[in-house]
Structures are given as structure tokens and as C-alpha cells.
Design a protein around this nucleic acid. Structure first.
Length: 890
DNA sequence: AGATTCGCCTAG
DNA sequence: TAAGCTAGGCGAATCT
């Protein structure tokens, strides 16, 4: 037996899984951690030493009980239980607010947990901590985050492994495989290294930017028969890109693509719309191609980061082999050990583009780069294109794999996920593809385990329950108001949770009343004082607030020292903390979360409404006017006397303007100071030289003069992705003029735009409207199903989606569908519905459809008329088309 | 013509 | 099933 190579290094955990195995007679569970090292190679860690467990308590016991009334012996004899239950001390149950003795019950493998949980519940035990993934359990129990130091023995060292890690044994596939199997692994994993370690070999490290490897891919497929015509992949390894154009028979294409995945070993897999197009298509084609066995199919689609062997390819009970990409119940795709990250979805979430085609998004990001937006292949006629000019199609395919990498890079998607993983202490895949409740679980359960609080299971079943009341929104009057200050509460909901100690562990449930309690203003919901018991959530939120301050300080320091990399890292971290803090309220106001109670969310908003209303009435008592308020903000007119709203270019007028600005700032600061108290910091956010609303809540505009000069627009069409560009641009221009006091000019400008529309003097692309459209694939009928809608053909965007599909273009549930309202054709004139024409120019070029001039003139007049009506010009007036708005128009 | 319903999108 | 929340505006179709 040769020597084992001892090894330790810093890695970032991409993803994890667990594997039950037999160590002789002993059932064991090993945790597999797929990691990227700080130095750049990939490492699979096989971690042994932790066994799955659940916790139990006897509901008939309480704080004074020395044992349980139910039989612990019977627990030990239950099928799947390992050994005797161990007392784990007195714990608080957040289900009933009682403290009672708890026991830890070890289970013989993760697959037995479900059965043990069921059996013990039937005996009358309350079972807790029973729905936590075993990988998550490792991070919780060892208090790890994604960035760890790992030390163990190198079982396998592949080509890209550091030379100093290599020995004759660990570079020999046969020997390595044997050693991996006896450490609980499944074979030689397709990573640079496989390292075996014990839980004692893992410890948390400071976050560092891991040099992840990303692969982007794209398929071109036949519209006639769905076959794959060609494919491309590009791999980004520390900024170095390698392109793989792939042609050949369909089987060959799939094999080559799979070979790229297995040899390049990427952590992230991206592409444009891979979730809904490329991955499902590959699954379908690989199943269609007649293979002898799942082992054979693995050569076509074995993208999972596991060895290709019988165990990994075999379909288990309700579970396909780990070797294949898999989509559970039509939801997100999982690829074991890797992270599928669809560039389409990321772009949509981050950029909120008006349209979502790859072409449109590229143009948005790189308006000057023609090469990136070039579209010389008609995707709706792919079969002909492929027959006529395969080289160009392949080139087009390669370009469409490069763009998603550039898009992710531009949006900093991957560093953001890594930062979120770091602050929420989860693996990177959980941060990237999971949901807010999982991030919060990671922090809350960790603290609960250390604080003697039992961890209940996630609430199952359909949601019923009444909605809780939300924030307060103040009425707003139509018109312009000069010189307004905007103040808002800093992190309002988190602050309320902290200062009132709101948590399921502190909620007073027994009706007791004590002066020390924190009592909500209207419903008198009570929470224990911090001194009596500091809530888990307030404790976590305070920690997050402090850590955000630390990251911000580190960011400032790094900027000062010119350390760009460090500044970037700290900025990502502080931003991730902000996101995470703001997620708490939503999760705790939901009704499925394990640590929630209907009172929690309701008390938070109750305090919020109380606080803001109290300030409004105090400000008004002082004689100042509150013009608007939404949830945590308040807009107050600054008493500055008569001063010009728009900045004069010089002279005495400019001085008066500057005096007004100075007085406004002083007023804002004085309000902030006056109303800030412990745990409720009211910040002076912005000063406006003018504020306008047409009188609807959540829709307003302001000219900001402090802390920077800009226009602030909220709610209006300008902000929305479902209006057309011309409306958005015209409205922006109109607001500029209104805020300068030039109301007549605004009306004239608007009228002239309406005239131009009527004269067909605008580009049709300025008139595209787009909205998200749902839909389900009906695999029996082989068609898209829009029956989620009560009246599918009554919705313009659904009609447009159907036209898209008809034209042979892709449709993805949830995608934004663009369309134009056109003149109704002769036969349709009687119809009351709008004549919709799908906008396909972005994808297949060609002539745009003719637009309906009266419809667009009407839409402009309606939206802009709502605004101008505030000073006497209504929709009808705008439509009159009389450009000179002088006195005679009235 | 006004009211009602559905559905999307935004503010916070 | 898996799942952050509520308040609010408005367009289009449809009903009265």
C-alpha cells in the first residue's frame, strides 16, 4: 500500500450531495462536496464522520419533566434508528412556546429519515429537525459557509491537479477508484482531484473570489423534425476562453458536447434560454435516440459531475440517475455538482429589459457593438439555412454561446451569487438557484441549534388564512409642489423586528402581561423583552446590520488604497447582506415558513403603520404639509417661501434658488434629527426642487437637487416594461418640462408627438408593447396550452404568443411577448378586440407590421392626458391636434 | 357609458 | 407541489 498524500487548501463549495454506503456491516453516509479551489482546480471532497439524525420530544412533557412519558426503548427498536436516543437538553418549541426535554435520534442513512419520522410521529412524539438536507446539516453543525479550508488525503489527482499533489498511486485510475470506493465515493469523479476527509478536516475561511469555470452552450435544431443540426460550447476558465464548434450526426454532437462537459469540468453551465429550450431538447433527443441502456445514454448526456457507472446511471425509486440533468416536476433543472444558470433568466431579473430576445438584450448592453447584434440567420427557417450555408449557421451558433458568457460577466451574476452564498452561509448552488426561505433557513436553524430552540418542519399543505395588512400609503393631490424633502426609515422592517424583539421564540402566547413586554400599538401583541430572551431573528438581523457596516467600511478603505479587487468583493458582500436582510420580513410574513406565526408579520406592519402615521401627524401639527408617504417614507413641503423651482442661470434669481435649496436641506436635516429615535432612524434621503403627481398613489416625479442632481420617476409608464418606447420617451420629456414649470411647452410637445404618430412619422419599433405570457406544454397534444387564463383569446399578449409559435419561433412560459396594434383588416372591423400583430423583427427581420395610428394616438393621449389634466389639459384636448396651445384653446 | 373582472407590473 | 409579503395603478375585455 502506497502512502496517502496529505493535502489542505482553500476551496469554495459549489454544490453538495450525500450518498449512503456500507462500511463492512456498518451503514454510513458520506457527503460529497463539489468545490473549486482558490488555486483554480476542481476538487471533490468526500466527507465522512457525520450521521443523519432527527430530534424528538414528548408533547405531554414540560420544563419540569425529568424524562418523557413515551417509551424511549421503543424508539431505539424502530426500524431505521441507530442506537439509543441521546438527550439533547431542554429546548423551546416554537409551535406552542413551551420548553421540554428533547432527544436526538440517529438514523441509519438518509433514505430512512422519512420512515423514522413517520413511525415516531405515530408513537406520539413531536419530530423536529427532520426535513433538513444532509449537506445543509454539515454546514450547520460545523458552522461552515461556502468558503472553507479542507484537509484530507488525495485519492485521485488528475491532469490539472497540482503536481505536488500527485503520487504514483493517486494518478493510477485503478488504485484511485478502489480507494474512493472504500471512502464511500462512487468511483473516479470527473474532477481534477478527489480528496477524502473527516469532519474535523473542515473549517470556515474568509470569503475569497473563487475562479469558477463556466461553460456556455447552444444548439441549432431543425424545425421540421426537432433533430439537432449543430451545437457549440465555449468554456471560460479564469478569463481564458475556448470555443468548441460541433457538427456531425446528432449522436456525435451529443457525445462531443458531453465530452466537453466532462473534460472541461465547468462549475456553471449557461446559455440563452437553456432551461426551457436546450436542456429539454437534449433530454428529449437523447431519449429518442435508441440506446441499449442508460449507460449508453450517459455518453450522450452524462453531464452530472459523477462517474459513469451502473449506480449513477440507474433510475432509482422516484429518482433518475445522478449522471443526467434532471428537472423535478417541471421546475428548475439540476445537474449534480454543477449549477445551471440561464443567462436569459439572469438578464430578465437584473436588467428588466422591455424585450427579451438575445439580440435585444445584447443591444441594450452593447449599443455600439454591431458584431454582437448581427443577425444574419433566420432562425424561423433553420432547415433551409442549414442546407444552404452550414458554415454561417455554425458561426452564428458559436456567437450565441459567447454572448451569454458576456452577459453574465457584465451583470456580475456569478460573483453576486458567491457573495450571497457567503453571507447566507450556504453552498453556491443554493444561493444561485434556491429561494429566499432556504437562505434564511441556513442562518436561523444554525442559531436555533445553538440556542436551545427546536427546529420545526416546514408547514405543509395548501395556504388558507387571511392576508395580513401591509404598509400605509398616503393620498396624493394632483399638481406640482415646490421644494419638498424626502425622508425615510433606514431598513424599516428589520429595525422594527430588532427593536421590538419580534420572533417566534419571543411571542407571548400564554396571555400573560408584563410591563417589560414589547407590546404592539393596536392589537397589543406581546413579545418578551430582550433581557428575558433575545429573539433569534432580532439577533441575526442585528448581526447582519453590523456586518454590512463592516463591509462598507472595508469597501471605503479598499477604494482609498486603490485595491480594486478587494473593493469589488466588499461591495458584493455588503449588497448581498442588504438583499438578505430585506428578505426576512417576507419569509416571516409568509404562512408556510417553519419559524413563522401569523402574528409576526402582522405586528411588523402594524408598528410600521403606527410609526409613520405618528410622524405624519406631528409634522402636520407643526404646520408643515405632508404631500405623500408610502410605507417607510414621508414627503414634506419645505417652508422656503417664494423661490424659483427651476435653476436660474445666474444673478439674483440664482441666489434665491440657492437660498431655497440651502433652507430645504436644513429643513430635511432638522426633521431627520427630530424624529430619529433608538431603533428607528429617519434619514434625510433627498431634496426636491419640485414634486409632481397627477394624483395617483405610487406614481410621482421629482427633480432631485440633493444629494445629486437628477430626475426621479416612480410608477409612471416610463418605469414600466409593458409600455412602448415612444410613450416612455415622450413622458420623460414632458416631466422635464413640467418640473421646470413649462406646462404649455409640455402640452405642445405632446401634441406634436401625437401628430407625428398620426402621420405615420415614427418608427414602428418605438411602438412595440410587450407583456409576460404564461403557458404550459401539453405533451399529449404536443402543443402549448394557455388554459391558465380565464379568457386566453381576450388577452393581446396571448394572441401574440400564439402568432410567434405559429411562425416557428421559440416560446418559453413567462417570456415577454412583443406586439404591435395594427389596423383591423376588413373582416375584423366589426370585432371589438384589438388587432394584434406579434413583433418578430428582432428575431427574423423583415418588414414591420402597419400600426393603427388612432390606437397609438389614443394611448398617448390617455396616459399623457392623465398627467396634463393636472393643469387643465385633458385627453380630449391633446387629441384635438391643435399644436399652438394659447388662450383660445380653452 | 360605467362597472366589473382578470392579469400584469410596480412601490416599498 | 413549493412557496418572501401587501398596496396600488391601469389596460383590455366583457357585462349591464
Amino acid at each position: 500500500m502506497g502512502d496517502f498524500m496529505q493535502w489542505d487548501e482553500d476551496v469554495c463549495i459549489v454544490s453538495g450531495d450525500n450518498r449512503d454506503w456500507q462500511d463492512g456491516d456498518e451503514p454510513r453516509t458520506v457527503i460529497e462536496l463539489w468545490c473549486r479551489s482558490r488555486a483554480g482546480h476542481s476538487t471533490l471532497l468526500l466527507v465522512n464522520g457525520l450521521s443523519p439524525y432527527v430530534e424528538i420530544s414528548d408533547p405531554s412533557t414540560d420544563e419540569s419533566s425529568s424524562g418523557s412519558n413515551l417509551s424511549l426503548g421503543r424508539v431505539a427498536e424502530t426500524n431505521g434508528v441507530r442506537g439509543e436516543p441521546e438527550p439533547s437538553g431542554m429546548k423551546l418549541s416554537t409551535m406552542d412556546g413551551r420548553v421540554r426535554p428533547h432527544y436526538r435520534v440517529h438514523v441509519r442513512g438518509t433514505t430512512k429519515v422519512r420512515g423514522v419520522r413517520k413511525a415516531l410521529s405515530e408513537f406520539g412524539w413531536t419530530v423536529t429537525s427532520a426535513d433538513i438536507l444532509f449537506v445543509q446539516r454539515l454546514l450547520l453543525d460545523l458552522d461552515l459557509g461556502p468558503h472553507i479550508r479542507a484537509s484530507g488525503e488525495v485519492l485521485w489527482a488528475g491532469e490539472r491537479a497540482p503536481d505536488e499533489a500527485k503520487t504514483p498511486e493517486n494518478t493510477d485510475v485503478g488504485i484511485a477508484e478502489e480507494r474512493i470506493l472504500s471512502a464511500g465515493g462512487s468511483g473516479v469523479y470527473p474532477l481534477d482531484m478527489v480528496v477524502s476527509c473527516d469532519i474535523s478536516g473542515l473549517s470556515r475561511t474568509e470569503p475569497f473570489p473563487a475562479p469558477f469555470v463556466t461553460m456556455s452552450f447552444d444548439l441549432e435544431t431543425s424545425i421540421e423534425n426537432n433533430t439537432i443540426l449543430c451545437a457549440a460550447a465555449v468554456v471560460d476558465r479564469a478569463g481564458e476562453r475556448r470555443e468548441y464548434p460541433i457538427v456531425g450526426a446528432e449522436t456525435e454532437i451529443l457525445e462531443k458536447l458531453t465530452e466537453v462537459v466532462r473534460s472541461e469540468d465547468p462549475d456553471f453551465i449557461t446559455g440563452y434560454n437553456i432551461d426551457n429550450f436546450d436542456l429539454p431538447r437534449m433530454e428529449e433527443r437523447s431519449e429518442y435516440i435508441d440506446t441499449e441502456s442508460e449507460m449508453d445514454r450517459a455518453t450522450l448526456l452524462g453531464w452530472g459531475r459523477v462517474p459513469i457507472n451502473q449506480a449513477e446511471t440507474k433510475r432509482g425509486w422516484r429518482r433518475p440517475g445522478r449522471i443526467f440533468p434532471n428537472r423535478e416536476q417541471n421546475r428548475v433543472w439540476t445537474i449534480k455538482g454543477r449549477i445551471p444558470l440561464d443567462a436569459w433568466w439572469q438578464a430578465r431579473q437584473t436588467l428588466r429589459p422591455q424585450r427579451e430576445s438575445l439580440r435585444y438584450v445584447s443591444q441594450l448592453l452593447w449599443p455600439d457593438d454591431e458584431e454582437m447584434q448581427k443577425m444574419d440567420i433566420d432562425a424561423s427557417k433553420m432547415d433551409e439555412e442549414w442546407a444552404d450555408r452550414p458554415d454561417e449557421v455554425l458561426e452564428y451558433c458559436v456567437r450565441d454561446t459567447v454572448l451569454p458568457l458576456d452577459i453574465l460577466e457584465k451583470m456580475k451574476s456569478i460573483p453576486r451569487k458567491e457573495a450571497l452564498a457567503s453571507v447566507s452561509l450556504t453552498t453556491v448552488d443554493v444561493a444561485a438557484t434556491s429561494t429566499t426561505s432556504r437562505w434564511i433557513d441556513s442562518l436561523v436553524i444554525r442559531l436555533a441549534d445553538r440556542s436551545g430552540v427546536a427546529v420545526p418542519n416546514t408547514n405543509q399543505g395548501p395556504r388558507k388564512q387571511d392576508k395580513i395588512a401591509g404598509g400605509y400609503v398616503h393620498e396624493v393631490n394632483p399638481g406640482v409642489e415646490p421644494w419638498v424633502v424626502v425622508l425615510d426609515f433606514k431598513s424599516m422592517y428589520p429595525s422594527i423586528m430588532i427593536s421590538n424583539n419580534i420572533c417566534s421564540t419571543t411571542l407571548v402566547r400564554d396571555g400573560s402581561e408584563d410591563d417589560s413586554h414589547s407590546t404592539s400599538p393596536v392589537t397589543n401583541t406581546r413579545y418578551a423583552s430582550r433581557e428575558e430572551r433575545l429573539g433569534l431573528v432580532p439577533q441575526l438581523l442585528q448581526g447582519l446590520m453590523d456586518s454590512r457596516d463592516r463591509h462598507k467600511a472595508a469597501l471605503a478603505k479598499a477604494n482609498e488604497e486603490g485595491d480594486e479587487a478587494e473593493a469589488f468583493l466588499q461591495d458584493q458582500l455588503q449588497y448581498a447582506v442588504k438583499i438578505l436582510m430585506n428578505s426576512f420580513y417576507g419569509v416571516f410574513a409568509s404562512n408556510f415558513y417553519r419559524f413563522t406565526h401569523p402574528s409576526l408579520g402582522a405586528s411588523i406592519t402594524e408598528w410600521a403603520r403606527h410609526n409613520i402615521k405618528e410622524i405624519i401627524s406631528k409634522v402636520e401639527d407643526d404646520g408643515d404639509d405632508v404631500v405623500y408617504s408610502d410605507t417607510d417614507s414621508i414627503f414634506v413641503i419645505a417652508p422656503v417661501g417664494a423661490a424659483p423651482m427651476n435653476k436660474p442661470s445666474g444673478g439674483e434669481e440664482l441666489e434665491r434658488w440657492e437660498d431655497a435649496r440651502r433652507a430645504t436641506l436644513e429643513f430635511g436635516e432638522s426633521l431627520a434629527e427630530r424624529f430619529t429615535r433608538e431603533g428607528a432612524e429617519l434619514e434625510f434621503e433627498t431634496a426636491l426642487s419640485s414634486f409632481f403627481s397627477h394624483g395617483a398613489k405610487k406614481r410621482y416625479v421629482g427633480r432631485v437637487v440633493w444629494p445629486r442632481e437628477e430626475m426621479l420617476i416612480r410608477g409612471y409608464e416610463v418605469r414600466r416594461t409593458d409600455t412602448f418606447q415612444l410613450l416612455s420617451d415622450t413622458m420623460t420629456q414632458m416631466f422635464e418640462m413640467i418640473l421646470d414649470g413649462n406646462e404649455t411647452g409640455a402640452v405642445d410637445m405632446t401634441k406634436s408627438v401625437i401628430d407625428r404618430v398620426r402621420a405615420r412619422d415614427v418608427e414602428t419599433s418605438q411602438l412595440v408593447i410587450s407583456r409576460s405570457c404564461k403557458g404550459k406544454w401539453n405533451s399529449k397534444k404536443e402543443e402549448w396550452d394557455f388554459s391558465v387564463y380565464k379568457n386566453e383569446d381576450g388577452l393581446p399578449y396571448v394572441r401574440a404568443a400564439k402568432q410567434r409559435i405559429e411562425a416557428g419561433l421559440q416560446f418559453t412560459p413567462g417570456m415577454k411577448v412583443g406586439y404591435i396594434i395594427s389596423e383591423p383588416e376588413e373582416g375584423q372591423k366589426k370585432q371589438k378586440k384589438l388587432a394584434v400583430k406579434a413583433w418578430l423583427v428582432d428575431e427574423i427581420g423583415g418588414d414591420p407590421p402597419e400600426y393603427d395610428t388612432e390606437y397609438y394616438a389614443g394611448r398617448l393621449a390617455k396616459s399623457l392626458g392623465r398627467v396634463t389634466e393636472a393643469f387643465g389639459w385633458d385627453e380630449k384636448n391633446l387629441l384635438k391636434g391643435n399644436r399652438q396651445s394659447n388662450l383660445f384653446d380653452f
